[in-house]
Amino acid sequence: MKRAVTLWSESGGVGKTTLATNTAAALGRRGADVLVVDLDPQLGSLTDHVGYGELKTGDRDHLGDVLLAEDRDASDLVVDAGAFDLIPSHEGLANIESEMAARGTNLREFRLRSALTPLAGEYDYFLVDPPATLNVLVDNALVAARDVVIPIELTRKGSVSIDGLEDTLDSMQRGFQTFDEDFRLGILAVVPNEVGDSNIYREVREQLETDGKPVTPFGIRKRDVLKQAWQAQMDLFTFAESEETRDLRDYEKDLLEQFETVARVIEEGSVEAATPEEVAR
């Protein structure tokens, strides 16, 4: 499988799905073939963001069916979301853990990886957006996409959450190594999200850098235009080009540059691809 990344945080409300949507769009607009897998059955997931919310309900084939049955083809679920392709989420995923337990599903954490492997030749990048809650969907995301991009609040709580996430990833890595001794999980980048100007933001960033965390040299600010793009069911790049949209202000255009930079981090596999000079604001 080509480069696959999970965007994950154990904390909700940190802009994970917005980051995933716009990073995927940035990669696609850079000429890459991108497949996004939405594993979050809750309302307000990436599937809703890009206008496919109707696929999350009803009696139709969905990703849960693929995870439960090895003979199901994930490619049948793919829809065109503009700059990237999408395997949409479905409300049925909320019960996937109990269904796997009832069926005695073997190697249940590896089901998504197995389902995506036949698609490896069609895509340059796979981005997986799981729910924040630790469960079998997160396990599947991390097994399928072992590089993790973490959005974080630049607060004391956010700083502590990174340490907790590292402990969680270390524990998962040791557990999965019982099946595959070469299994590795790693944090590719920590992306400060919904950033403001107070001293606490600067202090937490400095502490993260001192601790050697792979934090990007910029933070994505909380802007109303991100909510407006969501309401329009578009990624920010498409929203900015829409005929109904006013021209973005300069400080809003900075968001586009920052999502482009996160895309470049994924392309090059290192947070060093985001240099302070290129993204300084």
Rank of each mutant, 00 (worst) to 15 (best):
L256S: 09
E260F: 09
G269C: 10
E244H: 01
V271Q: 08
D235F: 09
R221T: 02
R246A: 11
D247I: 13
L255F: 04
L255I: 05
E241R: 15
E244R: 00
R223L: 00
R223N: 02
Q231V: 06
V262N: 00
R249V: 10
E244K: 03
E252A: 05
P217D: 03
L256N: 07
F239D: 14
E243C: 04
E257D: 14
R249D: 11
A229C: 12
R221D: 05
Q228M: 13
R264Q: 08
R264C: 03
M234W: 14
R264L: 06
L236V: 08
P217N: 00
T216E: 00
Y251V: 08
R249F: 13
E260N: 15
E244M: 05
R264F: 02
D247N: 14
D235Q: 12
L248K: 06
G219E: 13
G269M: 12
T245M: 03
E244T: 03
T216C: 04
E260D: 14
E267Y: 02
R246L: 08
T245I: 02
G219R: 10
R249P: 11
F218A: 02
E257K: 15
V271C: 05
K222H: 10
L248W: 05
E241Y: 15
F237V: 05
A263E: 01
L256D: 07
T216R: 00
D235P: 12
E241M: 11
Q233M: 09
L248C: 10
E252K: 01
D250V: 15
R249Y: 11
L255H: 06
D235G: 12
Q231A: 08
I266W: 02
F239P: 15
D247G: 14
S270E: 14
E267H: 07
E268L: 08
I220W: 00
E243Y: 11
E260P: 10
P217H: 01
R221E: 09
E267M: 09
R264E: 07
E257V: 14
A263V: 05
K227P: 02
R246K: 13
G219P: 12
Q258Y: 10
L255Y: 04
Y251P: 07
D247K: 15
R221Y: 07
E241F: 14
E268R: 11
F239T: 13
Q258P: 05
Y251E: 10
K227W: 00
F237W: 07
F218H: 01
Q228K: 12
I220K: 08
F237H: 03
E260T: 13
F239L: 13
S242H: 15
I220P: 03
D235M: 12
G269F: 09
K222C: 04
T245W: 03
Y251L: 11
L255Q: 02
L236G: 09
T216G: 02
P217A: 00
E260W: 11
T245E: 07
F237I: 04
D250S: 14
K227N: 06
L248T: 04
E260H: 12
W230K: 14
D224R: 02
T216P: 03
T216A: 00
A240C: 06
Q258R: 10
